[in-house]
Amino acid sequence: MSTGPRRAVADPQPPRLWKPVLALALAVLLGLSGYTSWAYWQDTAEVRTGSFTAGQLDLQLDSGQAVGLGTGYTKTSIAADDLLPAETLAYPLTVRNVSGAAATYGATVQRGSTWTYDGSSITFRLFAGSPDTSDTSYPRQQTCSGSPLGAQTFVPASATSVINVPRALAPGGSETLCVLVGLDSASANANQGARGTLTLVLTSTQAVG
């Protein structure tokens, strides 16, 4: 047995696998991502809801007055046809939050559409309380129970706040206010026979948080 000269034999190289692996991955990808098409069943389920109606933050006054947004009413019982200097008259006003949300409210007062008094005659003040109208003889000095919500002011030509700190009203809650209207003792004689109406604007805002 002859032995030839030995040739150096190179170490076997590892097979180049990347091509088949790539092809396999591509196939899997195509298979999964639908390049393969086949029939399939499907279903659609639809849910219909009831309606969503936006709530209203409605501030109502007295017994079902000022119903709805931005409404008002004339409370003719807040009036006097025989008001004289140094007299004050008290009137009740109920504020009701008929919405489902907590709210706060404030108020402004200003002269109404009729006004012939000077600026230093008719006074206004708001209380969280009830009127005491037992004093009916001149000079009538009626009062309000409870605490004043703001300072006494002469009724101004433009809206002026009469509640220093906004009042909180729970959903469905109400509060009795007392409106105190007076004629200043120093009112000038020229105001005799003058006429005036007042406009009280209460604005409620949904409480935050």
Partner: peptide
């Protein structure tokens, strides 16, 4: 203390009075 803001509903209710007058 929320820098978050959201819309708040509001309402305005207006009361007009009768007339105040007087003569001696």
């Amino acid at each position: 203390a929320p820098g978050r803001t959201w819309a708040q509903f509001s309402d305005t209710a207006t009361v007009g009075t009768g007339t105040f007058t007087g003569t001696l």
